[in-house]
Design a protein around this nucleic acid. Structure first.
Lengths: 257, 257
DNA sequence: CAGTGGTCTAGACCACATC
DNA sequence: ATGTGGTCTAGACCACTGG
């Protein structure tokens, strides 16, 4: 009972009839696991302890741990692999995990992953509008990356990415170019910043001169404007991104259910 | 044991070591429930039997039924309500259930549901392109509805909706106008066609003359073009929709996770 | 083979809604 | 008070993985 440091000494018992705001045991376990994930107790790609281990640590039944892990897996924080274990999700492993947040697809339905070219990295002060999205004071120091995605060599998406500078200390173009893998994989391994969730707002706009040139389309051509705010643990926003996307041979794909 | 007609006499036992393709019991229960939903055994909005009832009917434990229902609820086919029961999902009940598939939001973040105006209903033959999406032969008889969505009186989305005629026999503009509620609610109650899932492809286009007029924007203005294929039970496509959307004061919202 | 996650059971009790 | 879904347990066994 007193053997494990991570045991939740303050865990409420399963029965708590008079508690005004009832929280199930498995939710508490989930919170504990989330906190440990956030603190970096287990690195991305590593396995967490087995369900039986955790059940013993937390002094609950396996089924309760199971339900907590089920939810975390449903939120893509963990990945279950039968026979092997439960692993911390990462943006670095498979192609599909690297492009989990990319919704741009070919019109003919074939799978194709784009090549990314970082155009430049600049230090700047955040504008009022973006500051609101990032929940930081206006004028906060930020990094602004510009990036081009090419599908089969064809320039298709021009991204402008704003990051809170304090979380990405020392980020340079050279460091980025030396990295193999996706941008979120880069953030994860180099800065320990894990993108868990994002909200996107899509509009239609006309290409301005410089964008038209970069994407090789006519001035004034219609483009998708995809604005994204990406969040890490605790719903903390850490990235604002505005992507301009040609839809000659690609589209933005979404599933409703 | 022999009292209930719906009992699955052919349910495999829980253990089946040598079966090449193993299917868990709860998946079989899920299939049975899905079939009964599809057959209209329980109407949208009605409650299905309690977990205990179903467990007895199917001769399995309550936990197994629970897991089956959990998945169906996760797929939005059923809705659980603690203390009351489990209900067949519907597009007719609450505001939010009526607009479950609508992703157009105000830029300022306020909630607002649009007013719908059906412009016309026409009989036609399906084009090759749409036929492919609907998985019917080219030239199949279809209904084509045109509709305008207004947010706060401002025309914002112009939809052209193609339906396989054989599933919507007798649909007229008058019948539609007499109906209170959303379009999918109309389809559900009048024709028994339930939209369960949809895939959307989004592009940016320039407004043509007639669209510009309907949406009160300049000729050539950039618009979102949202193409949707909606599916009913068994992943059967039953609707193709092309929406043209102004994004002056609205946007298309999406969550990535 | 041992260890992991995945399924299934039976039973107890809790929270919520309704009568 | 009763019936519903929701939580939790303890234990058994299955399917998958890797040494």
């Amino acid at each position: 009972m007193s053997e494990v440091a991570t045991l939740p000494a303050n865990a409420v018992s399963a029965t708590q009839a008079d508690t005004p705001s009832f929280q199930p045991l498995y939710q508490q376990i989930k919170s504990l696991l989330t906190r440990q994930l956030e603190s970096g107790e287990w690195r991305p790609g590593e396995s967490i302890p087995s369900e039986i281990d955790l059940a013993a640590r937390f002094n609950v039944s396996q089924g309760t741990v199971r339900k907590a892990i089920d939810e975390l897996a449903g939120e893509n924080l963990l990945i279950r692999r039968q026979g092997k274990g439960t692993f911390v999700a990462t943006h670095t492993e498979t192609q599909s995990s690297m492009f989990r947040f990319l919704r741009v697809r070919r019109n003919d339905g074939q799978d194709e992953y784009p090549a990314s070219e970082l155009l430049d990295v600049k230090r700047a002060r955040v504008t009022a509008e973006v500051a609101r999205s990032l929940e930081v004071p206006t004028g906060e120091a930020v990094l602004v990356l510009r990036r081009l995605l090419r599908y089969g060599g064809v320039p298709t998406v021009l991204d402008e990415i704003t990051l809170v500078a304090s979380m990405f200390k020392g980020l340079t173009k050279e460091q980025f170019d030396a990295f193999e893998g996706s941008m979120y994989g880069f953030f994860e391994t180099q800065f320990g910043v894990r993108m868990l969730r994002a909200e996107e707002q899509i509009k239609a706009v006309s290409a301005d001169t410089t964008t038209a040139e970069a994407l090789r389309v006519g001035m004034g051509s219609p483009l998708l404007c995809v604005e994204r705010v990406a969040y890490t643990y605790g719903d903390r926003p850490v990235e604002f991104r505005r992507g301009l996307c040609t839809t000659r041979s690609h589209h933005y794909a979404n599933t409703l259910s």
